[in-house]
Design a protein around this nucleic acid. Structure first.
Length: 931
RNA sequence: GUCGGAGUGGCGGAAUUGGCAGACGCGCUAGACUAAGGAUCUAGUGCCCGUUACGGGUGUGGGGGUUCAAGUCCCCCCUCCGACACCA
């Protein structure tokens, strides 16, 4: 059978069409203007659709079948939308800066650029084999100089901006300077602009910029030789990449003022078509919390300010607790224990100073993880007290490691009656407990956090929580000892890395050490071609050493920065940007990749990114894994909002609709020692798995080398072809679900294609065997029903259902064993083409079509064939199906009821009983309630 | 612990507004074709009972409820997956 559809024939067909598509630019998408616009411009008038995958890091390890799941999904969707009359933009790029290439370079001595380019070429080749319909003219890599030039340009936009709280948006820094000059805005320390020196001016502006050099406790990871963002550090206090220890240390680093956008990042989530889980993760990460700041008087001329969400419980405060790192501690430690200090509070120490010092040391030595694991509350008394503003009571001040320096003010008022942590602490140290909310009688717990009337609270007594909060807030504000406030868990984004393989900052310094922007027209600042690029392994005590510092010629640069002083020499910033930088905006570059005037043309951006129906705009469908729920998606939204505020993009959000594809899991097998064995060589018999005769245990996990359970696309191409792999991956289940890979099931998808092929093509001659006859009535109805449901399913990304419907139609064609009517063959091929484009193109050509099926229209169901003349109606008695009637589709309820009662079986069953009720739904069913 | 998502045959999974549960596929069983079959084709396949055609019961994690009718709606519970986790 030389023309049987098998792996060999599939490969011939696939190679043929991939070559043709490439040659003819089949997947090129028109822009409204610029290099990528076309002369006819016809496509531009169609509704636009921007479909995108989260672009991959070009790993050297090669693909396994789990990787392309989302890419196939977007490809099918994009093809479907093209066929339904949309101008679809779909391409792919590479997130190619980052640690792995550098780590690889360190091991092999190969330059990161070389390694990266090899990996990209390799990965591109593997993806090409899948027949993805990408516009490859638009492909970018973040490491391209022409790309990172614009990454640097965007950095400068951020650097040259400040957040105007009054208008709630970012504005150019020059506008702030103008406000200062006119005296319309106060400087941070209140000095007048004209009384400040030139250097003071620059320092002042630096403090307002959205990208600034900040001295803050940062995550120093000596193992990677760089500092890391909070988001890149695990709960165990290790680096997400490489699992190296991370230490908190104050250092001067580049920060981005993402906190200025906290509220907008939060509230705009409501306008996005994203999964609830990702929105929730972002909300949690932003961690907005409304409450009040309350100050407590001290013996010294200072106040302790606490943040609390429960100012209504102020009367119940019985202690003050500070984080061990709190900066007031030194000044609050008493010389001696006050008389009557309980032994419990002293931690066996002779003086408060000794107790505090040893506790602080102990806290510092414990990692975050140890502090978390140790849920037992501990602390020591400082030997001094503060005053509760609301009732003048003296509260002992403790330090305790359950209070975190990084949240709120690093100090809490301890209210054991209404907070379980405070309750635990109070119990352990025998501190008083005062309930200020009346628990219900049934309550038998410890701290009570529910609602109820205030008690023991003076003027608040009897008020419910929310009213009590309002009253106490007014009281605090009137008495000058508190104010309403909002805190966030979100911190500013640490943006510098001490690595080689990243975008250089377009920043230089003069003698003052205040950052200066490299003039825009001087971009890009290219990476030097370092020989010794690898970061050194350092220890906790050492300082980061940016590798760029070793490029001695590069570290200085001559620029005219436009300050009237002409060309001068400057020192370059030696840090590089984090890997997230490129992915913050790559989607915009897809739109206009060849533009060397702007990062994206305004008209082009508006065409692809704005929503005519009043939505937030952005990418119409963004598909990727849920692991980027916080990092990439939050950073990207932040950058987009800055660009929006500055007028560079048309909408406030980058990604209108986000879809998280599931992961392909695979069975992995462990022998009795717990060692993984080659999954491919495990045999199964009646549910028992054996490897080389030994029984092994099965589990499921991510595909990969470590579990020895990888299946590569190449294996599948060899056995079945790319179309079968595409079809199987889409058939396995809904796109957003994790699913286990089963190589043995792939044959099912192959059979479908084989049967389709056999129904249309003679396997021995290769000739088309369709008939130029009209399909009979039943087949015609089935065809239109199929068209309708396949179209619906594809529009909703339910490809598994679409395939099921196509299979049903094809099964019918197989059963009939007649030459397929041309009309049916034509529809079938078009229905299949988004899923399996190669075999569809081949069949399309055999059907005599001269233009690509990619450009064909998706079939449209004729509604006349969707309504049946006669339908089968179930007749139930007491909800159980007892008979069926075939009736005209438009039989009304009364007639249906009469026919049901006349039915032989029903009459027999009803005989002698009373019919209580008859429910007759035309077109659906009849139910008789009988007793 | 809190939040988010999900529990349907041996397996992956289908089921419009509540209206015939198990579409489609894998696997399995039987048969056809074959030198052979881990290819291909045909038929059957939720479970239990009965067996003569046929039938009867039961069934969507568990329990309760609403309804003529519940996988779907409401309440309680259990399990699994994911995120966050002393956030004051």
């Amino acid at each position: 059978m030389p023309y049987r559809y098998d792996a060999r024939l599939a490969e011939v067909i696939e190679a043929k069409w991939q070559e043709k598509w490439r040659r003819e630019g089949t997947y090129h998408t028109d822009n409204p203007s610029g290099d990528l616009s076309s002369s006819d411009g016809a496509a531009i008038d169609l509704p636009k659709l921007f479909v995108m995958d989260m672009f991959p890091y070009p790993s050297g390890a090669g693909l396994h079948v789990g990787h392309p799941l989302g890419y196939i999904g977007t490809d099918v969707f994009a093809r479907f939308k093209r066929m339904t009359g949309h101008n679809v933009l779909h391409t792919m790029g590479y997130d190619a800066f980052g640690l792995p290439a550098e780590e690889h370079a360190r091991q092999t001595g190969e330059h990161p650029r070389k390694n990266t380019e090899n990996n990209i070429a390799n990965m591109q080749r593997q993806l090409d084999r899948l027949g993805l319909g990408h516009d490859q003219r638009r492909s970018i890599a973040t490491t391209d100089v022409e790309f990172y030039r614009w990454t640097q340009w965007i950095f400068l936009q951020i650097f040259n901006s400040w957040y105007d709280v009054e208008s709630d948006r970012a504005r150019h820094i020059d506008e702030l300077q103008l406000l200062f000059e006119e005296g319309n805005r106060k400087t941070i320390d209140g000095r007048l602009w004209e009384e400040m020196t030139e250097s003071d001016h620059r320092k002042e502006l630096s403090q307002w910029r959205l990208a600034y050099l900040g001295e803050a406790p940062v995550n120093w990871c000596p193992g990677l030789g760089t500092v890391l963002a909070n988001e890149e550090v695990t709960n165990e206090g290790r680096s997400e990449r490489g699992n190296h220890p991370v230490f908190k240390r104050p250092m001067k680093q580049w920060m981005m003022k993402i906190t200025a956008y906290a509220d907008r990042l939060l509230s705009d989530l409501d306008r996005l078509d994203w999964t609830e889980s990702v929105k929730t993760m972002q909300r949690n990460w932003i961690g907005r919390s409304e409450g009040a700041l309350v100050s407590f008087d001290l013996a010294i001329n200072e106040k302790i300010t606490v943040f609390t969400t429960r100012p209504d419980t102020l009367f119940g405060a019985t202690a003050m607790v500070l984080a061990p790192e709190h900066d007031l501690i030194d000044r609050l430690v008493a010389t001696d224990w006050p008389s009557g200090t309980p032994e419990l509070w002293k931690n066996k120490c002779a003086s408060p100073a000794e107790a505090v010092a040893s506790y602080q040391q102990q806290a510092a030595e414990h990692s975050e993880l140890e502090r978390q694991e140790n849920k037992e509350k501990t602390g020591v008394y400082l030997g001094s007290n503060c005053v509760n503003p609301v009732n003048g009571e003296s509260l002992p001040i403790f330090i305790a490691d359950y209070v975190l320096m990084g949240y709120g003010t690093g100090a809490v008022m301890s209210v054991p009656g209404q907070d379980q942590r405070d309750w635990d602490f109070a119990k352990k140290y025998e501190i008083g407990i005062v309930r200020t909310v009346q628990p219900p009688e049934s309550f038998d717990g410890e701290a009570y956090t529910g609602d109820g009337p205030a008690i023991n609270s003076g003027f608040l007594d009897g008020l419910e929580i929310s009213e009590a909060k309002t009253q106490i807030r007014e009281w605090l504000e009137a008495n000058g000892c508190g104010e309403r406030t909002v805190t966030y868990k979100l911190r500013d984004w640490l943006f510098s890395r001490q690595r080689y393989w990243g975008e250089p900052f377009p920043i230089v310094y003069d003698e003052s050490g205040i950052p200066i922007a490299v003039p825009e027209e001087q971009l890009p600042v290219e990476l030097p071609d370092l020989i010794d690029w690898a970061p050194r392994h350092l220890d906790e005590e050492s300082d980061p050493e940016p590798p760029l510092g070793r490029a001695s010629e590069w570290t200085t640069a001559t620029y005219d920065i436009g300050d009237g002083l002409g060309e001068r020499q400057f020192q370059r910033e030696l840090n590089t940007m984090p890997q997230w930088a490129g992915s913050c905006w790559y989607y915009l570059r897809y739109l206009d990749p060849t533009n060397d005037e702007r990062f994206v043309d305004e008209k082009v951006e508006r065409y692809w990114m704005s929503d005519d129906d009043g939505g937030v705009g952005g990418v119409d469908l963004y598909v990727g894994g849920v692991e980027h729920a916080v990092l990439h998606l939050l950073y990207s939204r932040f950058w987009h909002k800055v660009l929006f505020d500055l007028g560079h993009v048309s909408g406030p959000e980058p990604f209108q609709r986000l879809f998280n594809q599931g992961y392909i899991q695979a069975a992995a097998f462990q022998d009795s020692r717990g060692v993984y064995v080659e999954a491919e060589e495990v045999e199964e018999n009646d549910g028992v798995h054996t490897f080389e005769g030994q029984q092994v245990t099965r589990l499921f996990g991510k595909m990969g080398k470590s579990l020895k359970n990888s299946v590569t696309p190449d294996d599948m191409y060899a056995a079945y072809g790319a179309d079968t792999l595409r079809l199987y991956e889409m058939f396995m289940g809904p796109l957003d679900q994790d699913r286990p890979w089963e190589t043995k099931s792939v044959v099912g998808s192959h059979r479908l294609l084989q049967r389709v092929w056999r129904n249309l093509v003679d396997e021995s001659s290769g000739d088309l065997r369709v008939a130029d006859v009209d399909p009979d009535e039943d087949l015609k109805r089935l065809m239109h029903r199929t068209i309708e449901s396949v179209g619906d399913a594809m529009a909703e990304l339910r490809f598994n259902s679409a395939i099921a419907r196509i299979t049903e139609l094809n099964n019918e064609l197989t059963r009939s064993n007649e030459p397929v009517p041309r009309e049916v063959a034509d529809s079938l091929v078009r229905l299949l083409s988004p899923l399996t484009p190669h075999v569809a193109e081949e069949l399309w050509e055999l059907l005599g079509q001269k233009t690509s099926v990619v450009k064909a229209s998706f079939p449209v169901a004729d509604k006349n064939f969707l309504v049946e003349d006669s339908i089968e109606i179930p007749i139930q008695i007491n909800g159980k199906v007892r008979s069926r009637l075939t009736v005209a589709a438009d039989t009304d309820a009364t007639a249906l009821e009469a026919m049901a009662l006349a039915d032989e079986k029903i009459a027999a069953l009803v005989n002698g009983k009373t019919i209580r009720k008859v429910i007759s739904i035309p077109g659906r069913m009849v139910n008789l309630v009988v007793s």
